[in-house]
């Protein structure tokens, strides 16, 4: 599903975020990308939802080379990718329901379609009762669940989560990871960047470790660090 061939990303100021990355992620996999801050984890995700383009090499998603993708096609790519952020990126002046529905409105979905699917997504993340609350009225964990509901509301085949537990306490972090695992089991590919050791070690999923923009380890049923 996802293939990166010899991908290098150099930012305009000359910072090399990724260098010569070769990577293959199959359909319905659950992958952790780990590494210290600045190792290139977020850049890797940004290449996948075409927030950034590779300086060199190919980023291929479902046989489409994203580097060659024209600007007008990008919205249609993103409708097939759900993105979850550390800071949730919810619209503060809209209710949770409206935030989730927004992703469908953008696609021009009908009102009844929106109502049904937004309701299902909120139910899946356990927020149906708080649908009419505003983001500011919810806890961090609840906001993150709302963000996940928005990401999955149109059933995208791929969900990218960039440090989804970065702002959360350990038990809430586990809730979020279990939610992402549940989404993965509904035939969705899930890629999570994190530096939460206990979660990575506890989940025993595929782990790709980055350091200074290079892959230093790619391990099935992996752990956060091989040191020790």
């Amino acid at each position: 599903m996802i293939v990166l061939r010899n991908v290098t990303k150099i930012y305009p100021k000359g910072v090399e975020a990724l260098s010569n990355i070769d990577l293959c992620i199959g359909k319905e996999e659950f992958v952790f990308i780990v590494g210290p801050t600045g190792s290139g984890k977020s850049t890797l995700l940004k290449l996948l939802y075409r927030e950034e383009t590779a300086t060199n090499g190919q980023v291929i998603l479902d046989r489409v080379n994203l580097s060659e993708m024209k600007a007008p096609q990008i919205p249609f790519l993103r409708r097939n990718i759900g993105v979850v952020f550390q800071d949730y990126k919810l619209l503060p002046n809209r209710t949770i329901y409206e935030n989730v529905a927004f992703a469908l409105q953008v696609m021009g979905a009908s009102r009844s379609f929106i109502r049904r699917h937004a309701g299902q997504a909120l139910d899946l993340v356990g927020l149906l009762k708080k649908a009419n609350c505003f983001p500011g009225q919810l806890s961090g964990g609840e906001q993150q669940r709302a963000c996940i509901a928005r990401a999955i509301v149109n059933n995208p085949p791929l969900v990218l989560a960039d440090e989804p537990t970065g702002n959360l306490d350990p038990s809430t972090s586990w809730e979020i990871i279990h939610l992402l695992d549940k989404i993965n089991k509904r035939n969705t590919t899930v890629i999570v960047t994190t530096h939460n050791k206990s979660i990575v070690d506890g989940m025993r999923k595929r782990v790709i470790a980055l350091e200074s923009g290079r892959i230093i380890r790619d391990q099935q049923l992996g752990v956060y660090s091989n040191v020790l």
């Binding site: 249609f76 993103r78 409708r79 619209l91 992703a103 953008v106």
Partner: peptide, 16 residues
Amino acid sequence: QTDIYIMRLVGATNSF
């Protein structure tokens, strides 16, 4: 800007 960023993220076209 944030609204627009989020709109783009969830796949809003430019004209939208």
